[in-house]
Design a protein around this nucleic acid. Structure first.
Lengths: 206, 206, 206, 206
DNA sequence: ACGTACGGGACTGCCCGTTATT
DNA sequence: AATAACGGGCAGTCCCGTACGT
């Protein structure tokens, strides 16, 4: 089979998405420079304009095709684990360990986009909200199942758990950017872990 | 007492700060337009550059002189209340009631600035971090006092409480912007209230 | 007879010419968008550049193969009529009736191209001038014949008649675009008809 | 009296208008390059943006403040002359003599703008139409006065005269651009002069 | 203290044209 | 013959900042 030729539309498109994701992660969407993205992806204006109508469409595609899977893979594991609380706590610990440098420097790409674009671009907001809702729905269902299994107290409201867990995770990473301190991030996550532990039923309950 | 002339340096400066705060709240700092700020403040460029060196200096002044008091007045009440947990819960309820429209539309000015500017401007980050630290320190001390009074369980880490409470409040308002739904915001704050309640000592503990 | 395949070079070429003519009529040549032309013709860029060297060549072909017949068919009838003045007057009336909407909106394609392209592209000017000259020559000869038949006064200069008739027709349609009023167009053509009537010999002349 | 300093807003504005007028005259409005205009006026983007909101506003100002007086001064003399027909004929002769080079090369700025911009920009059309109407109104009134004085036949319709004279003048200059020949232009104007002569009453009429 | 004129840069959008590919 | 991927340039917009003038 012959070597690949120069034309690789999917590769080009993917390169643009990744380059855009990184540039947006670092600078936000509006301050993201197309020139930087092009240089980083190694393509030219023509290629960009061929694959995406404009900067906005590129941004939407980044949300749908990069940010969304990025968010999903984080909670998917926890949703499918035998014990939700254990998995969530494990996730918190992993996040503090693995990605704290990136998180402290540039924050969570998802949270950044929500904060920047939700109020000023309805298209962004709709797409970002969809991700929030999927995540929320995942936590709600997981919590219900866990309640059925007796792993979570039956008097807690799954909707409140979902909204609060999502918000506090993003909040920790967000505020952490200002402090630039691992201690603050870890303290925040300790608080979250404390909250999660408290969701377990009392030993004498069942 | 002589009639006031048209020149009112302090008034002008204050008008600029307020106009800048509003424009930044709506559009973020980098997308904030000086022209909009000037039009909204009713002055011209000459006045602006007389009072501030440049856009950055204006932004710093907004953080120091508008955002900081704005944040402080929110938690000051809770810090001085006889029972911290009761006061914090009351604060959560007030926030959902009073400012939810503005919060859902444009978010918290403090959180917005942290997310946008912390990674790209060290001067902003330092100033914003200072606000975070004051807030954190306030909660830590209040929590310690409450523990001394037996109003908060002694096994909780005040640092974790502080980091987590701050982060989750900002997180709720932030993520709420994407959902544009009061239900989500309320659910998040219900989760926070649940967490706060759990900080109280067990009835049979002391 | 075998089924037609999808490849139809002549059809494609003709579709491109028509689409280009319409786009140019609406927007002028330089502002005409190849993308619009392609979309309207239902083909892609490869087909265009297979049939024409570049945008300029496409424009030249539109002049030669679409605009030229378009202009010619208008005066051909008048040239071959038994009485030139009657025919010309009838033509004026027909133009005001039939095409006034299109003419008022977008003007005469021929006149538009003359005004836009003559000064900036010699190739266009040459081709457009050729059409002018054929038209002019047609009127000159028709006028001479009419003079021979005693249908036109012998003291008028056929060259002046030709240049003036062509110019005033195009002028009426051109200025009519600014007024967007059928009244203006009709008034102009009434003036032209008046001029044409005045070309007839006095009853007592011959 | 001290020498003029560098700040001369009116001079700058006027320089921009003149430079824009010339660039538009040569290239049309849409193909007119702001960079060329700036270079020719000797100012920078900032100055342009200060005096005019955008390219469109600059174009509108050119129409109102340059093209309009330009058109008006041409027919004003004829309107105020003791004999309108003599004056109009004299104007035709002067136009062929004086401005035929410019006219043959780039046409009449007024006619060019009508043909290019009327169909695609309502703001341009409105302004250009206003000029047409003023001109038309001027001819109508002049013709009525001339009819009162017995200098023009009473059976001609002043509205038709006005629309036709305006249209044929612009038409001659327009079509002349394609021919690039002074002969054609002169022949056209001979036709117009012939028409004007025919407006005079018959010697035996009054 | 403040208003107006102006300098100059950077970015996105858009477009024409070319080339690899079928 | 025709498609789709891609190259590369240019223009209008918009903005921040400076400096002249009152």
């Amino acid at each position: 089979m012959a070597a690949q030729t120069k034309r690789q539309p999917d590769v080009t498109r993917q390169a643009l998405l990744e380059a855009a994701f990184n540039e947006i992660h670092r600078n936000g969407f509006r301050a993201a420079s197309l020139e930087n993205i092009l240089a980083s992806a190694g393509v030219t204006k023509g290629a960009l304009y061929h694959h995406f109508d404009n900067k906005q469409a590129l941004g939407y595609a980044v949300v749908d095709e990069v940010v969304r899977p990025f968010v999903e893979e984080n909670w998917r594991a926890a949703a499918e684990a035998p014990n939700m609380i254990d998995a969530a706590i494990e996730l918190c610990r992993r996040l503090t360990r693995e990605r704290s440098d990136m998180a402290l420097s540039f924050g969570c790409p998802f949270n950044n986009l929500i904060n920047e674009m939700s109020p000023v671009d309805e298209g962004f907001r709709t797409r970002l909200n969809q991700i929030v809702q999927e995540w929320r729905q995942g936590i709600v269902e997981t919590t219900r199942r866990a309640q059925g299994r007796g792993q979570v107290r039956k008097d807690v409201d799954p909707e409140a758990v979902a909204a609060f867990v999502i918000s506090s995770i993003e909040g920790c990473v967000g505020v952490g950017k200002a402090t630039q301190s691992r201690e603050f991030l870890e303290a925040g996550f300790r608080g979250l872990i404390d909250y999660l532990e408290h969701l377990r039923p009392e030993p004498h309950e069942h």
